[in-house]
Measured scan of single mutants.
Amino acid sequence: MQIFVKGLTGKTTTLEVEPSDTIENVKAKIQDKTGLPPDQQRLIFAGKQLEDGRTLSDYNIQKESTLHIVWR
């Protein structure tokens, strides 16, 4: 499925993911596209910070959802 990651600059990155992907895995995909290391990424969805060990489905993140990224 496709999801979007929007940064503070307003730039949006598209990712191809599975609902079973962990947040850690998603951060690795973001690094592949942007070069930003996972330890500098904070992902937010529906006002919650996403924890590395959880999956996208744990947070009810579905296709075409938009996550927000904040740099540490």
Rank of each mutant, 00 (worst) to 15 (best):
T13M: 15
P38K: 15
Y59K: 00
K27Y: 03
I23T: 04
V70I: 13
I3D: 01
S20W: 14
P37T: 08
L50V: 04
T66R: 05
T66W: 09
Q2I: 15
Q2H: 12
T55R: 11
S57T: 08
K29A: 06
E24M: 13
G10F: 09
H68D: 09
G10K: 06
I44Y: 15
V5H: 01
S57K: 12
K11Y: 13
T66V: 14
G10H: 09
E51Y: 07
L8I: 12
L15G: 00
D32H: 15
G10V: 09
H68P: 01
M1K: 02
A46S: 09
V17C: 05
Y59W: 02
E24C: 06
V26R: 00
L50E: 00
T34V: 08
A46V: 06
K6I: 14
N60P: 03
S65E: 06
Q62G: 12
H68S: 09
D52P: 07
V5Y: 03
T12R: 10
Y59L: 04
Q31E: 08
Q40W: 12
N25A: 14
V70Y: 13
Q2M: 13
K33N: 06
K6P: 02
F45Y: 12
R72T: 15
K63E: 11
V70P: 02
K48C: 06
V17A: 04
R54E: 04
I69F: 08
G47C: 05
T55Y: 05
F4G: 02
K27C: 02
I3Y: 01
L50M: 06
N25E: 14
D52W: 03
N60Y: 06
K6S: 08
P37S: 10
I61R: 00
N25P: 00
T55L: 08
T22P: 04
P19W: 06
D39H: 12
F45V: 03
G10M: 09
L50A: 01
K48H: 12
F45E: 01
L8N: 07
K27T: 02
K33P: 03
K29C: 03
L56N: 00
L15T: 01
E51G: 04
I61G: 00
Q41M: 15
S20F: 11
T12K: 09
E24F: 13
D32I: 13
K33M: 12
Q49G: 07
T12I: 15
Q2L: 15
M1D: 02
G35P: 02
Y59H: 03
A46Y: 08
D39Y: 11
V70S: 09
T55C: 05
P38S: 13
V26T: 04
G53H: 14
F45H: 06
K29M: 13
T55E: 03
Q49T: 14
K6M: 13
S57A: 14
S20N: 14
G47W: 05
E18W: 13
S20P: 02
K33W: 10
L15P: 00
G10I: 13
D39G: 12
E64I: 03
H68M: 12
I44K: 05
I61T: 01
D21A: 06
D58P: 00
W71M: 14
